[in-house]
Design a protein around this nucleic acid. Structure first.
Length: 85
DNA sequence: TAGTTGACCGGAA
DNA sequence: ATTCCGGCCAACT
């Protein structure tokens, strides 16, 4: 069974519980490459799904990354609403 | 096929 | 504290 990086990343991000936020590096590490943090973002940006809480994925330093669904502002709102912020 | 870009990270100046 | 540089990976042209 050979899932691509994008598939793994999507599956992982989808498993992120509510009120919890994961860093790109953490997701990348779970996907198999702890150094593929950039790749994770690249995948989300090109192939993000509405079923995936990509807004729960943030930077390692805790800063909010970008969001292709309304900008970082919208992301912050969602996190605050979820209780992760 | 190769080159460029990007939702990143970590270290150094 | 801020700014710059190098490195890794996947997608796009």
């Amino acid at each position: 069974m050979k899932k691509t990086f994008a598939e793994k990343v999507r599956d992982i991000v989808r498993k992120i519980p509510k009120g919890k936020s994961m860093t790109y590096k953490q997701v990348a590490a779970k996907a198999g490459n702890s150094n593929a943090s950039r790749a994770v973002g690249a995948i989300m940006r090109t192939n993000f799904d509405p079923t995936i809480p990509c807004h729960r994925v943030v930077h390692s330093n805790g800063t909010i990354g970008n969001y292709n669904r309304g900008g970082p502002a919208r992301k912050r709102e969602i996190l605050m609403q979820e209780g992760a912020l």
